[in-house]
């Protein structure tokens, strides 16, 4: 019965598109999650997505046909600035993120309010904040864009995996032995920004942090080396996104919050499992 229903849904290309895009975004966002959690930047997802929200409002007001042209560069620049300020301690990382994040959110909402063309303003805002059904209305072009960007993110991550580990673990040592730590931090910031912009479609800007940090935190409960944690969080994230989308289709729940709910459940399971195995080891 359930499988028949699923099989019927799979007939529709938009369901297949949603699954492809959802899984890819989940994969990308989990990869750098470990690094962000460890650098104490768990909330950068939030901050950046609010910036992206602000940029989107501006794009909407300006009636840009391709809003990505504005949103992506603005988000990348903010990411660079945020990771910069995190390093010198004048404004602490979390405070800087909070400042930018709330500022952009207020600014975006203000702009939407003043210049709004659409009559359903709160509906629009809600969609941008909590993720829309837009993942179910993807065009093939958007799917391809997503595939290309995800492939680029995964490629960059794999190619620079060892450097990212080294710079995350001990930045001073990396600099001392001649690694271009600032360059790699910049690279991390850019990749994060691309992921955030991608993921906004899936879960909306309020829930992105969940997609970035939950798989990493869950994996850190179970494993003790960087490689195993990274692999585990990628697998977890993909599985959670996949089942979340399926559940939301079957039960008719909102896609974004369902995925996050599954992530939370997975964290609870990993927490319990970590307690048991940790207890056995001692």
């Amino acid at each position: 019965m359930m499988f028949e229903k699923l099989a019927m849904y799979f007939q529709y290309p938009f369901v297949r598109y949603a699954l492809i895009v959802g899984v890819l975004i989940a994969l990308c966002s989990s990869l750098l999650g470990v690094t962000l959690v460890l650098k104490r930047f768990s909330f950068i997802g939030d901050g950046l997505s609010h910036v992206a929200f602000g940029a989107m409002s501006v794009a909407a007001v300006l009636n840009l046909t391709n809003e990505m042209l504005l949103v992506l560069p603005v988000t990348v620049i903010s990411a660079v600035l945020l990771l910069r300020t995190g390093q010198n301690a004048k404004v602490k990382g979390d405070a800087a993120i909070a400042m930018i994040s709330v500022g952009a959110l207020a600014f975006g909402y203000l702009i939407m309010n003043i210049f709004a063309a659409s009559s359903n303003l709160s509906g629009d805002v809600c969609t941008t904040l909590f993720g829309s059904t837009s993942i179910l209305t993807l065009t093939p072009k958007e799917v391809w864009l997503c595939i290309v960007l995800s492939a680029a993110v995964v490629f960059v991550f794999v190619m620079f995996y060892n450097k990212i580990f080294a710079v995350t673990f001990d930045e001073d040592f990396s600099k001392a032995v001649g690694t271009n730590a600032d360059g790699y931090n910049l690279l991390i910031a850019i990749v994060i920004a691309v992921i955030i912009v991608l993921a906004m479609n899936l879960v909306g800007s309020l829930l992105i942090s969940a997609l970035v940090i939950f798989p990493a935190l869950s994996a850190m409960r179970l494993f003790r080396s960087f490689l195993t944690v990274t692999i585990c969080s990628a697998v977890l994230s993909v599985v959670c996104a996949f089942s979340g989308i399926i559940i939301s289709i079957l039960a008719g729940t909102p896609v974004g919050s369902t995925i996050v709910a599954v992530d939370v459940a997975a964290y609870a399971v990993c927490y319990a499992a970590g307690m048991i195995t940790g207890g056995m080891r001692k």
């Binding site: 470990v34 060892n162 990396s174 080396s225 960087f226």
Partner: peptide
């Protein structure tokens, strides 16, 4: 989460 081997190897960066 970092194993001893991963850290020592990062000396070769």
């Amino acid at each position: 989460p970092a194993s001893v081997r991963e850290i020592v190897l990062s000396g070769c960066q």
